[in-house]
Simulated assay, not measured.
Amino acid sequence: MGKLTGRTVLISGAAGGQGAVTARRFVAEGANVVLGDLRDEVKELADELGDSAAAIRLDVRSEEDWAAAVALAEQTFGGLDGLVNNAGVLHQGLLEATSRADYLNVVEVNQLGVFLGMRAVVPALRAAGGGTIVNIASVNALQGVPMLTAYCASKFAVLGMTKVAALELGRDGIRVNAVCPGVIRTEMTEGLPERIEQRLLSEIPLGRFGASEEIAALTLFLTGADSAYCSGGEYVADGGWTAG
Rank of each mutant, 00 (worst) to 15 (best):
G2L: 03
K3M: 12
T5N: 12
R7S: 04
T8E: 00
V9C: 04
L10Y: 04
L10H: 09
S12M: 06
G13D: 01
A14F: 09
G19W: 08
A20D: 10
A20P: 02
R25W: 02
R25C: 06
F26R: 05
N32F: 13
V34T: 06
L35I: 10
L35Y: 12
G36Q: 09
R39L: 15
D40E: 15
V42Y: 07
K43G: 14
A46D: 05
D47K: 15
E48T: 13
A54H: 04
I56L: 14
R57C: 09
L58E: 05
L58Y: 10
L58F: 12
R61V: 03
S62P: 03
E64R: 13
D65F: 07
L72H: 08
L72P: 03
Q75R: 13
L83H: 07
L83P: 02
V84W: 00
G88N: 00
L90S: 04
L90H: 10
Q92K: 05
E96F: 13
L104D: 15
N105M: 12
V109L: 09
V109D: 02
V109P: 05
G113D: 12
G113W: 13
G117E: 10
V121L: 08
V122N: 04
R126S: 10
A127W: 03
A128E: 00
T132S: 15
I133V: 15
I133P: 02
V134F: 06
N140Q: 14
Q143M: 14
L148R: 13
A150T: 07
A153V: 10
K155S: 00
V158Q: 11
L159S: 03
G160A: 06
T162H: 00
K163I: 01
V164G: 00
E168N: 05
G173C: 01
G173M: 04
V176G: 00
A178Y: 09
V179G: 11
C180P: 01
P181H: 04
G182C: 11
V183A: 11
I184Q: 04
E187C: 04
E187Y: 07
E187L: 11
M188C: 05
E190K: 13
E190H: 10
L192Q: 10
L192R: 11
L192E: 09
E194V: 13
L206N: 08
A211N: 09
E213H: 03
I215M: 09
A216N: 07
A216P: 06
A217K: 00
L218C: 01
T219W: 07
T219L: 07
A225P: 11
Y229H: 09
Y229V: 03
C230R: 04
G233T: 14
A237Q: 10
G239H: 06
W241N: 08
G244F: 12
